[in-house]
Design a protein around this nucleic acid. Structure first.
Lengths: 237, 237
DNA sequence: GCGTGTAGTTGAACGTGTTCAAATTCAGCT
DNA sequence: AGCTGAATTTGAACACGTTCAACTACACGC
């Protein structure tokens, strides 16, 4: 076996640096010119590496989006966690998280479309619904778990367990709307978030009513059915 | 000898023939090898036309999907209309239409993924949510209007008016699930349709309850908000 | 017949994403 | 220092979607 010493660090660091450089360059040009108009050659040239080298670190142009996705979530998380500590009602917490999401995404509006374009493709390595290579989804759902937990509202256990996933799905819907939203400052998306959060809050309370138990159970069984149909999502932690 | 009594007819007919030939050939190869693996050169070659000629009739490879979309809807409509005459409850009618949709799509499962891939892209000419060049969406919503009308159930007017659109959205969701469904015979999608139709039926009755009026109004206002944010969809016709 | 304009058709050429065999760098070893 | 093998880097080559200027076919008016 090969010698395993700590001196590897220098080597990997070099690689990591190059990889980071390429990613930064790519995201910059994406912001400036959009995804389609950005060529791999342009990225390589601006990053001062060869074309092949870019492909050494990112198997394809789409894989750069994967990295972007992760970056987006990291920023969202960093903004949301502190903000969540200041609110306690479910409604306010959800509203906070959704508003921050839009803020974080703002600089990328013009090229974000391609995200969904590839994301919705079942065979794409970026499919956020089902693909094994996507830890971002897990992390994103965990954020919504944080939104739900520590809430004083009395929500039935069965619903509370599915809520993070349901809210994540809702959040994906809002992102889809945002992508298509041409209004200045994305005010339509903001308005939609305000109204949907209000409605969702009401629906949760309605669904929590004992009177609604049978219907709620049926709906939740459905959600389970959908989740289990999608490839393995709960593996290790 | 070539001269016909109908002057223009011969000309346009020639073009239509070529166009149809290219489309048939394309769909055939799509079925056999999937979308990505089918090259425009292969289509042109098999159809015995030049590459440029294929582009004369279809501006891009994606535009072939547009044609496929139309074809799919035509088949669905042809299958659904007679079947609808035999049922009268909303639940049964919706179930019929959804089942037939899956049947009609079946031969195209492996390449249908690309449909959503391009469809979800806001700048794509195929975007089914918002694009001006897509009459298929209108026709598809009309089919769901037929599902709703002539139903004996007592549904509030406001809900009944939005129901076709809502059911179309639901149907898009099922299609999305179907695309990702790898189970044999798409049994999971069928099961999902059975359960969701049941649930939807119950929800409609629930929402029709006078007690639910305020919440229903709020939800419908939301739907309107979403619809009007999407580019003009109701024009002439 | 003959010219003319429009519909239809051609294939070469371009730009782009992607691949790959070869070249280069570099850390550890003798 | 010199060697070795892995990590990194290179640029040429390939396949594909797309464009375009030129060409052909043909119906019509004269």
């Amino acid at each position: 076996m090969a010698a395993k010493r700590k001196k590897k660090t220098a080597k990997t660091l070099k690689g990591d640096q190059t990889k980071a450089l390429i990613l930064e360059t790519a995201l910059q040009i994406f912001r400036e010119r959009g995804y389609e108009e950005t060529t791999m050659r342009a990225i390589a040239e601006k990053a001062d590496v060869s074309l092949g080298n870019a492909y050494y670190y990112f198997h394809s142009k789409e894989h750069l989006i994967q990295a972007f996705y992760q970056r987006l979530h990291d920023e969202h998380l960093a903004a949301a966690l502190p903000a969540l500590e200041k609110t306690d009602t479910l409604k306010a917490r959800l509203l906070t998280v959704m508003r921050l999401k839009i803020d974080v995404m703002k600089p990328y509006h013009q090229f974000a479309g391609v995200l969904f374009k590839t994301a919705a493709h079942p065979e794409s390595p970026l499919n956020p619904f089902s693909d094994e290579s996507d830890p971002v989804r897990q992390q994103s759902i965990e954020l919504f778990a944080k939104v739900v937990e520590d809430t004083k509202a009395r929500i039935p256990k069965d619903l509370k367990a599915e809520l993070p996933y349901l809210l994540w799905m809702y959040h994906m819907g809002i992102v889809l709307f945002w992508i298509h939203d041409p209004s200045t400052g994305h005010r339509r998306t903001h308005r939609l978030v305000d109204h949907t959060v209000d409605l969702i809050d009401k629906l949760i309370h309605l669904a929590s009513n004992p009177f609604m138990r049978p219907l709620r159970k049926q709906a939740l069984r459905l959600v389970d059915e959908i989740r289990e149909a999608l490839p393995d999502e709960s593996e290790e932690k």
